[in-house]
């Protein structure tokens, strides 16, 4: 008797599972493009300090607003700094801050959402109304307030962004928990007398993990856009650190005659966001979650 391999799968290690998901993601054109862009940006963020041709803060008045040339690939800005150098360095801060920011968002948003979904009742009602109240506050105003009170250091930005982007995840995690909470295996665990912690850890998390991870990946790209907006408004990274938001903000007045100083950071920022978005979508599809039918909350 010959048995086809499709029904024969043995237990896989975590590494095997992850690599399988990545291979599935890369097997679609959109996933492949997204992953390549993202990987390219991450590698660039690591190696850019070593490959940058010039000093990012070297001001040279004689080289103001040079058009792209063999020497200065992307031209120079209004202070005579090399735009190429600043562009390849410009994603580092944003990428790092938002990466850790979304981790925090995932953690608190996910856990709170699961907890609310599990306990239900009054606690759930109260927590969810507070979350709703926060959702109704325009995040940028709140961020501006926090940043102007506490400063723009990384230690402030990461938790602040993490907090504001975690609210949406609470809802997603709660909804995903509601899907599994009515299933008999949860009832069975309850009837056996497992603690709430054990139920969350053993029964719920393995079943909602995928949905929350996908939501977190999506939040990452949003947070990146949000963080760049802050920088653009002058509340993110402080000069002279190169940052895309800041670079766009500085050079936007010169757009009519020195477009290169704006184009390069814009391309950098938007390609990264598109890359993360495509990756998150491919990730969702590889895990079997259809994002197209579920609008982000």
């Amino acid at each position: 008797m010959k048995i086809n391999s499709i029904y024969k799968e043995e237990k896989k290690s975590a590494f095997q599972k992850v690599s399988e998901v990545i291979i599935t993601m890369a097997s679609r054109p959109s996933g492949f493009i997204g992953l390549s862009i993202l990987v390219f940006h991450i590698i660039l963020a690591f190696v850019s300090p070593y490959i940058a041709p010039y000093d990012f803060k070297a001001i040279n008045p004689t080289l103001m607003l040079q058009a792209p040339s063999a020497e200065y690939w992307f031209g120079t800005d209004d202070l005579g700094r090399d735009v190429f150098t600043r562009t390849i360095l410009g994603g580092r801060t944003a990428l790092t801050i938002t990466f850790f920011g979304s981790l925090i968002a995932l953690l608190w948003g996910g856990l709170l959402g699961i907890f609310c979904g599990l306990v239900g009742g009054k606690i759930d009602d109260i927590v969810m109304r507070i979350v709703d109240a926060f959702l109704s506050i325009p995040w940028i105003l709140a961020m501006l307030l926090i940043v102007s009170l506490l400063g723009t250091s990384t230690e402030v930005l990461i938790p602040a962004l993490g907090f504001f982007y975690g609210k949406g995840i609470v809802r997603v995690a709660r909804a995903a928990t509601h899907d599994v909470i009515a299933k008999d295996f949860i009832v069975s665990a309850r009837a056996r007398g497992h603690s709430n912690f054990s139920i969350i850890w053993n029964e719920i998390i393995p079943n909602v993990r995928d949905a929350i991870l996908v939501e977190g990946a999506m939040r990452w790209s949003w947070m990146l856009l949000g963080f760049s907006s802050l920088s653009f408004l002058g509340f993110g990274v402080s000069p002279p650190t190169p940052d895309w938001g800041l670079m766009i903000s500085n050079a936007r007045g010169l757009m009519s005659f020195a477009y290169w100083a704006v184009i390069a950071p814009i391309v950098g920022l938007s390609s990264l966001i598109i890359g993360i978005n495509l990756t998150a979508d491919a990730f969702a599809k590889a895990l079997g979650i259809d994002r197209s039918t579920k609008a982000p909350v």
């Binding site: 295996f185 009837a191 056996r192 007398g193 053993n202 029964e203 393995p206």
Partner: peptide, 19 residues
């Protein structure tokens, strides 16, 4: 809790799919 155990109707729902 131990002395009384349940077996459910639908094993698809009573077994955690990720275990």
């Amino acid at each position: 809790l131990r002395i009384i155990q349940l077996i459910f109707q639908n094993p698809d729902e009573s077994l955690n799919p990720n275990h």
